[in-house]
Write a protein that binds this DNA or RNA. Structure first.
Lengths: 119, 119
DNA sequence: CAGCATCCCGTTGGATACTG
DNA sequence: CAGTATCCAACGGGATGCTG
């Protein structure tokens, strides 16, 4: 790892965001409504139970996500974004926008290529 | 991977940034001055040649970084940020700031914990 | 100088089965 | 419902040696 502390903090921030499903989990929780475990599963059709659990635990550890267990049968657990977690919102937002633009750019390039190929 | 296209773009953006050394490489190139391969190595003392090459190639592929080869002996290759690549700057900047704040927060918490333990 | 090739290992994530 | 446990595959990344 890089020694220079001024440069290392990128990584710290990225660690909280990186993980195959973390951005999407955060996206849904940032909508504001607390979500139950299986609600999240439904929103992320391809995630495995295991990964959902792991990622949620990590986000909880960073205090980005809050986990509330309702002591009842059948069990009910709700996940929500913390106030602190909301501070990630602008970053996610800019990442998202940049991503959209980036994809468009790539597609444009692809089209131009086909164009010149068929010329 | 998530099917919903509106949510997928996070990942696209992250892909361009993620990689153990990419943020730090970008940080240096965003200073504006073109850098030679070995200059970058010196700035990232712990990176291996292999990883520097791989990451630079990926960034080049995304047109975030421009690679210029000077046909001379010994070879000289300069890497610089593209105009397009500069559009990542605000994102990197916010990530950095969030990272700094996040570390401070963690340290504060650690200190408080020691405090209560020794009470 | 600026790489590429090869081999290797640890981590991340996936598949599946089981449980309070 | 909301998880755990176990096993396994893929990939990112590291170490080392060679080259135009």
């Amino acid at each position: 790892m890089q020694k220079n502390p001024a440069q290392c903090q990128f990584v710290v921030a990225l660690d909280s965001i990186v993980g195959k499903w973390k951005p999407i989990i955060l996206y849904h929780l940032l909508q504001g409504k607390p979500l139950r475990f299986n609600e999240l599963r439904r929103l992320l059709p391809d995630i495995t139970q295991r990964m959902l659990t792991l990622h949620l635990r990590e986000l909880e550890e960073e205090e980005i996500v809050k986990r509330v267990v309702y002591p009842q049968v059948p069990p009910k657990v709700e996940y929500s974004i913390t106030e602190y977690g909301k501070s990630l919102s602008p970053i996610l937002e800019s990442l998202h926008q940049w991503g959209v633009a980036h994809v468009k750019r790539k597609q444009l390039k692809m089209n131009n290529q086909e164009q010149t190929e068929t010329d």
